[in-house]
């Protein structure tokens, strides 16, 4: 069973009299253990695609099926729970809570779900160690470098053992070396834990770590054969 399935998904924004078609009949399946990339220029509909995949936005047409559940059928107030338990977000820079140290950034996810157990704490420390942050557990975001912050965000995304990881331009505002490191780590954790992952990016250097590359143009999604086969 695919982890995530888009079936003929379209999204139309109404801006006064005008209609903007952000997504046009997008279909896609993502399997367990697969790391796919969606590339495209800004304004192509990448963010809309990710928002719909992340249960943050409802499509105008079509269906989104996450782990066998049709997101359309889930009540709006329960969507936060779906995001909490099924989806791991890696967002752009500055998405950490400024007043929490690295370890607490991960545990806050558990806190949203209820209690924090000893096992959770150990799991968080293990994750952070895998990502090379074992020495920085008590540091606050302002004391971390951009790369370290992004690695913390990766760890946070994996904290609740989600089915799918969604990464929104994870390499924005990082230099090449750090950017490669970050994407490499996402790929590594995805394979290690047998998750599915989607990375939205405009950074074509990062594609070598991805299993499939899709190109988004004017709301249409197509498999990018050249990038995919280069591997």
């Amino acid at each position: 069973m695919p982890v995530l399935e888009f079936k003929n998904v379209s999204k139309i924004y109404k801006q006064g009299e005008n209609e903007v078609q952000a997504l046009n009949d997008v279909s896609l399946t993502v399997e367990q253990g697969e790391f796919i990339a969606v590339i495209g220029p800004s304004g192509s509909g990448k963010s809309t695609f990710l928002s719909i995949a992340g249960a943050l936005l409802n499509p105008t047409q079509g269906e989104v099926i996450l782990n066998g559940k049709n997101l359309h059928e889930i009540k709006p107030k329960d969507l936060a729970k779906v995001r909490l338990h099924e989806i791991g977000f890696i967002l752009q820079t500055s998405n950490l809570v400024p007043y929490l140290n690295v370890l607490d950034q991960l545990l806050v996810v558990k806190r949203m779900a209820g209690k924090v157990t000893k096992e959770d704490k150990q799991y968080a420390i293990q994750l952070l160690q895998e990502l090379g942050l074992g020495e920085k557990l008590k540091k606050f975001p302002e004391q971390l470098s951009g790369g370290e912050r992004q690695r913390t965000a990766i760890a946070r995304a994996f904290m609740n053992n989600p089915s799918i990881i969604l990464a929104d331009e994870p390499t924005a505002s990082l230099d090449s070396k750090r950017a490669f490191e970050v994407v490499q780590l996402i790929a590594k954790e995805t394979k290690l834990r047998n998750k599915a992952a989607i990375m939205v990016t405009h950074d074509e250097r990062m594609l070598e770590y991805c299993d499939k590359v899709y190109r988004m143009e004017d709301g249409r999604l197509s498999l990018d054969e050249t990038s995919t086969h280069k591997k």
Binding site: K46, S51, L56, L57, S94, N95, D168
Partner: peptide, 8 residues
């Protein structure tokens, strides 16, 4: 949605 597609 504020969280998505925000470049700083």
């Amino acid at each position: 949605l504020l969280a998505i597609g925000r470049v700083e």
